[in-house]
Design a binder for these strands. Structure first.
Lengths: 381, 381
DNA sequence: TTGTACGCGTTATCAG
DNA sequence: CTGATAACGCGTACAA
């Protein structure tokens, strides 16, 4: 048996002590005394029977050299890269992180790796992100972006790679969609607030700007609140919507000031009836809390509160913040699974997967001290 | 001028309406009527002068076809993949996310993409993570892991790829290290607590288990607190350390119960002198807050608190939680920059970059009601 | 059943 | 200055 030639002998200038660079399929073939094709078959088409003798030799060589095929070369050859592109509007958002976690887990289990692209809230770069990811031959996309870049939709379909949308729909895009059931969630929150005796409501959201989840939540709120019917005898909720501005560098607390004004207006409108706020996500909830602190008010006393997103700090702010918990981890897992199914060839019309939220009741929405509203009939006549 | 041949004409079975798949360098060459080599040179070696005529033709062809080279093929050819591997112990940790953000930003600006691998707190998979990333030819690693997998260090040096460690050192690993200056940060917190009049201290940390940042912080705490010198006339701080257990599924609130006991012991030990807690990170801070709530105690009243990590919710818990803010974003940016410098060929001994923390004083550490301790001399004789 | 030869998209080398 | 050619590591028709 001939002594195996030293690997990488082709470059004479390389020092003999060079790191034992990755073994290639050729190395394995040489070591096992077979052809590259045989090694390749052994790895990819185990069903095609090989002579037990040969198979054993290859197997031994593979483990001896610690060989594993180069995904790069594989991708080049067969187009499949075992890579998933994940584009996120803002990694700072705990929601996005949870999705990332779920998706990454599923992908890893399936032998895929996730390439992350963070937009850093610069939604204009969505197309750029997809192009960058695509250049690495990612096999599909999971998009948790604002969905406001029309070019992104075009880019996706043009590339012909499957796409799964998480939380935000993209107008012109044919794709699976995974999200919280926003209508159900809002309705659940409203029912809870009403049952607790809160009557006058304010929905606080970031600027809607066509972002689907924001639109849906606001619409559900409007539908659930009979606006300004406070004259009637029914125990109906009345409510309004307020768009909290983004924080701008020049006037960092302008949004808080605006929020304070809105909260004061809310209580005036309520005219003694218990008033509460529904917050569209955890960022808004924090901003609201800042406004409350500046006003010297406390959740559950001057105002009630239910907020989207059950963060880990929610129990510890004020009397505990009541939240709508999203099954974020499952959303991420489902998104990844959808994508993997498509990659396995599943060809269905775009699916919609809507998961219900859960209400976590805490102090911020407990029955208000003023029992006035409770004298009303809870059920319509 | 001949009509350009339809791309991908080689496969007759492909439908004519197939998506216009990425243009290759061959397409450009054909379009421009030059050789592939010329196109390649035009792109990579602009310094090598080309005939203006030819250069113009190539340029036109490139933009006409919207050509951009395939990083995959480039990686295959030259080993460099323009990929950075980022391994994170736990994406759920806001600290890790901040690092991720900073690093990703710098990498993107430099034309690199980040491949993320989340360990999900399973530190045993560190080696696996690095191997997976390495198979995609990542050019270097940023590691924010526990640093307890000795094989990981071996793997890294064996691969000969540059590594930057963030926040946690790895014992046997030759690598740049970027982190908060833990000694400075702890000392700063202790000085603040002492100045505010807190005398008996407890340091609460997750189990140290050889994790470098935990070790360093605990050591700094011990050094800054003269343990149990309460008999002396000096206004020295005395303190102890407590390791908060991990939450286990069977007994989810066992850690909180243990914490409650520890806090009660602390106050007994203090015997009337103001007692405060230093928390090793935001997760521990939250657990501490849970214990406080169960005890019916409030930060800044029954106990003082300073906690590592200035999260966005810190101002809104209780009277506001005093924190040690880490320059997380800069840490991420610096880590990435270190790596990029190494990739550009910088060959220096491993560097250590320690950034100072900032104290954000809030209600939880304001001077305690009991002014007893304030009568002591603030400066030693 | 196994080996040979080619091509995936690039880049580097060597002629011309 | 430019073009042909080989090679990177791998998978797969095709031939043996």
């Amino acid at each position: 048996m001939p002594a195996p030639k030293s690997p990488r002998a082709s470059t004479p200038s390389a020092p003999a002590t060079a790191s034992p660079a990755r073994a290639t399929i050729a190395d394995v073939a040489r070591e096992a005394g077979v052809s590259k094709a045989t090694v390749s078959r052994f790895l990819n088409h185990r069903d095609t029977l090989l002579t037990p003798d040969i198979a054993a030799r290859v197997e031994r060589a593979v483990s001896a050299l610690g060989y594993s095929p180069s995904p790069m070369a594989q991708a080049l050859k067969r187009g499949r890269s075992r890579l998933i592109g994940l584009v996120v509007a803002d990694v700072t958002n705990p929601y996005s992180v949870a999705v990332l976690r779920g998706a990454e887990q599923v992908c890893q289990e399936a032998g895929y790796l996730v390439m992350l692209f963070n937009l850093g809230n610069d939604s204009g770069r969505e197309r750029e992100a997809m192009a960058a990811l695509a250049s690495y031959q990612v096999e599909g996309f999971i998009l948790n972006t604002l969905g406001r870049d029309p070019e992104a939709a075009a880019e996706a379909t043009r590339q012909g790679r499957p796409v799964v949308l998480v939380d935000r729909r993209h107008s012109g895009m044919q794709a699976d969609f995974v999200s919280l059931d926003n209508a159900q969630a809002v309705q659940m929150a409203l029912t809870h607030l009403q049952a607790q005796g809160w009557r006058e409501l304010l929905y606080v959201t970031e600027p809607v700007r066509g972002v689907s989840s924001r639109t849906e939540r606001e619409a559900a709120f409007r539908a659930g609140c009979h606006p300004s019917q406070q004259g009637e005898g029914r125990a109906a909720l009345s409510g309004q919507t307020f768009e909290s501005q983004e924080a701008r560098p020049e006037a960092p607390d302008a949004p808080v000031l605006a929020l304070m004004a809105a909260l004061q207006a809310l209580r005036e409108r309520a005219a003694g009836r218990p008033a509460a706020v529904l917050s569209s996500n955890s960022v808004v909830t924090l901003r609201l809390s800042a406004a409350m602190a500046r006003l010297g008010w406390q959740w559950g006393r001057e105002l009630g509160l239910v907020g989207f997103d059950d963060t880990d700090w929610a129990p510890h702010v004020g009397p505990g913040i009541s939240t709508i918990a999203q099954p974020t981890h499952d959303l991420g897992r489902l998104a990844a699974n959808c994508l993997l199914e498509r990659l396995r060839g599943l060809s269905l019309a775009p699916r919609q997967i809507l998961l219900p939220g859960t209400l976590v009741a805490r102090g911020s929405s407990r029955a208000p001290a003023n029992p006035e509203a409770l004298r009303q009939e809870p059920t319509p006549p």
